[in-house]
Design a protein around this nucleic acid. Structure first.
Length: 423
RNA sequence: GGAGAGAUGGCAGAGUGGUCGAAUGCGCCGGUUUCGAAAACCGGUGUGCCCGCAAGGGCACCGGGGGUUCGAAUCCCUCUCUCUCCGCCA
């Protein structure tokens, strides 16, 4: 959620930011409503103050008794009616304004390149040479089923298209990746969390998934719970409504969870194999930090994600997303894309963002600063990393002419020393 | 799932219709004292919002929501959560 006081103070900045994003936000309408709400509030509170004073007087008078008390009560009753009317008007308008505010995106940082869509994203770094093969490299959907480590048909049998199963060394490889990732994060000072995979609608609102992206979420109607689309949601909301100790910042958390996404409207686009599925595993990094250091922390966190790809020896690049491609809640995002030799394309395996105070304001996450006053924190998160596409890149990058796949050395200890996955 | 008990400030714990944003204790911060510290004593110590240049004034919050009343931490309804016991269960 944006800061209404900031909007009042400098609407021009917000107008430009929304335009850059391609978001049709009527700033003037928001400002007008805000002014009206505050006017009504002042009036209603004034009446309430009168009423409170009148009630107090009745209390004092009642002790002495007397006929004047009944008359005073009648007057107070009339005042109360007036106050209630004014307050209900204020309440309705304030609620409507708050509702609209939930659909207003986070302005991007000034440094974010302007652009309307993914074509405007800027490559800021590339690592690794393109792997060379003495044969035509295959795609993972050919490699993995042939090795018997991935089964798409059975996934579809269980839950429909977009669900896959991993078998034997495939399942174990994924588990090895998860464990190695988390071990790296813990070594970097992160605290690991295990969290619920179902959360309430209010929690989804805290991080910005609701109300705008309801159609992308799986919902358990009978219990009014939603399956998490990313660990960002439960982990960021761990501190919802809390006032943290400023000296404890930055807090660095990581968590491994499955992620559930309906992917409504994405059918047919890059969905073959395990590239885009309704359920996948991911290790997520989440930071709670201060406004002063959040931008620098984003670099650090992105470095942690990149280090994983380097450790695995996977060619990758880093994109800074342009204004038009930056997510609703984010102020600045870097995507990490890994190279897929089988499809000769790039696959997004991580998205590292700073949400500035946007999520903190929605979720009510503050920290007590040096001056003793609570202040909204900045939240960051980044994948570290998404599992399916890492599996894809490993299988395709390390495939051999005989169909086997060499295991990256860093993972071997997690696979009982296995050096190669063969049939 | 059934039965019962409970939810008050950082913590503990009073308060059952009026001057209660809330006693008291602990904790924390500042001061006095001390060579220094402890102890003791004195003072302070929640959050959000509105009006205001400011000084200052006002409103709201005692788990959430709703109701009764001139007035609710206190009465009523409802939801959530916690604890105890029973059942079921990985």
């Amino acid at each position: 959620m944006i800061d209404l006081a900031a909007l009042r103070k400098d609407p021009a900045i917000f107008r430009k930011a929304f335009a850059d994003r391609g978001a049709a936000i009527d700033v003037d309408a928001l400002l007008a409503q805000d002014a009206k709400v505050r006017e009504l509030k002042t009036r209603a509170e004034g009446l309430k103050a009168e009423l409170n004073a009148a009630s107090k007087a009745i209390g004092a008078a009642a002790k002495q008794g007397g006929a004047a008390v009944e008359e005073a009560k009648a007057k107070a009753r009339a005042l109360g009616d007036q106050q209630k009317a004014a307050d209900s008007e204020r309440e309705a308008l304030e609620k409507a304004l708050a509702e609209q505010l939930l659909y207003v995106p986070n302005p991007c940082l000034p440094e974010v390149p302007a652009g309307t869509d993914a074509a405007g994203n800027v490559v800021v770094a590339t690592w690794g040479d393109e792997p060379q093969f003495a044969f035509k490299p295959k795609a993972h959907w050919d490699i993995a089923p042939a090795l018997g480590i991935m089964d798409f048909e059975r996934g579809a049998k269980l839950a429909g298209s977009g669900f896959v199963t991993l078998r034997g060394a495939g399942a174990r490889l994924q588990r090895a990746l998860v464990t190695w990732f988390i071990d790296q994060h813990v070594a970097n000072g992160y605290t690991e969390w295990a969290v619920p995979y179902l959360v309430s609608p209010q929690i989804m609102q805290g991080t910005g998934q609701l109300p705008k992206f309801a159609d992308q979420l799986y919902r358990c109607k009978d219990d009014d719970l939603l399956l998490v689309p990313t660990a960002e949601v439960p982990v960021t909301n761990l501190h919802a409504g809390e006032i943290l100790d400023g000296a404890s910042l930055p807090l660095k958390y990581c968590s491994h969870t499955p992620c559930f996404r309906r992917e409504a409207g994405a059918a047919g686009v890059g969905t073959r194999g395990m590239t885009r599925v309704h359920q996948f595993d991911k290790v997520e990094m989440v930071w709670f930090t201060t406004p002063e250091r959040s931008r620098a922390d984003l670099e650090t966190m992105r470095g942690h994600a990149e280090a994983l790809l380097k450790g695995l020896g996977l060619r990758h690049r880093v994109l800074q997303l342009c204004t038009g491609d930056t997510g609703f809640s984010s102020a600045c995002t870097f995507d990490l894309e890994v190279w897929s030799p089988g499809t000769q394309g790039w696959l997004e395996v991580s998205s590292c963002s700073t949400f500035t105070d946007f999520q903190a304001r929605r979720a009510g996450i503050r920290a007590r600063g040096a001056d003793g006053k609570p202040q909204l924190v900045h939240t960051l998160n980044g994948s570290g990393l998404a599992l399916p596409r890492c599996l894809i890149a490993i299988l395709e990058t390390y495939q051999q002419a005989d169909g086997s796949v060499v295991v990256p050395p860093v993972l071997r200890p997690y696979l009982g020393g296995m050096e190669r996955i063969s049939k």
